[in-house]
Design a protein around this nucleic acid. Sequence first.
DNA 1: TTGAAGTGATACCAAAAGGTACCCCATAAA
DNA 2: TTTATGGGGTACCTTTTGGTATCACTTCAA
Lengths: 105, 105
Amino acid sequence: MPPNIQTGFRALADPTRRDILHLLAGGEQTIAGLTTHFDMTRAAVKKHLNVLSDGGLVTTRTQGRERLNALDPNGLEPLRDWIGFFEQFWDEKLSNLKSAIESKD
Amino acid sequence: MPPNIQTGFRALADPTRRDILHLLAGGEQTIAGLTTHFDMTRAAVKKHLNVLSDGGLVTTRTQGRERLNALDPNGLEPLRDWIGFFEQFWDEKLSNLKSAIESKD
DNA sequence: TTGAAGTGATACCAAAAGGTACCCCATAAA
DNA sequence: TTTATGGGGTACCTTTTGGTATCACTTCAA
């Protein structure tokens, strides 16, 4: 499944997955390591990592018998850009407010 | 349900709802008006609007017998900020690359 | 006042999602 | 060679989600 806007936003829709991203922001971690932070089984965490991987938000590398999961910030960029499109509207709102104030005299 | 990060990202996880936001970016619309753009019933669109409303992304006002749905960009801001936290990592990556190149001599 | 247009709400259905329990494989350490 | 650790995969279960059908209420117009 290629990473795209859909798989990306879907990955962010779950609180556990957002927590995982914050944990990985502190450095690479194994599944076992991540699992200690949650009240669920390793298999469940692994499923979340698969979703994050589909969304292009996490990458994995093998080191010995360990699999180190790392944050992939590149996958977040298009999501922020998608939201960014709408910034013009809150800016617009601000400028409307501004001109409303300025024309008050 | 108060708008928060969870309800916000959940609202963005569905392609129909993201399309609705783009449609509303062009101006207020009734449910009937929005429904013409999708291959589903008015009731389904209404459900999506409820989710968007829970996420604080859409507001509604009544005008006669019509209910006009409008984009609420304020709800998007905290979501963009949440993603924004991770920008330091892709910036970091860039600066790592930069220093790697600079130390190449 | 009769009817059509615009909406809200909900019972119901099928599919997707979150989670567990197991099973099996590889690797590191005793 | 055992044995414990780290991991992948999947059948299975329950809840959530996306969607439809249907009923009831309001408003505008003929």
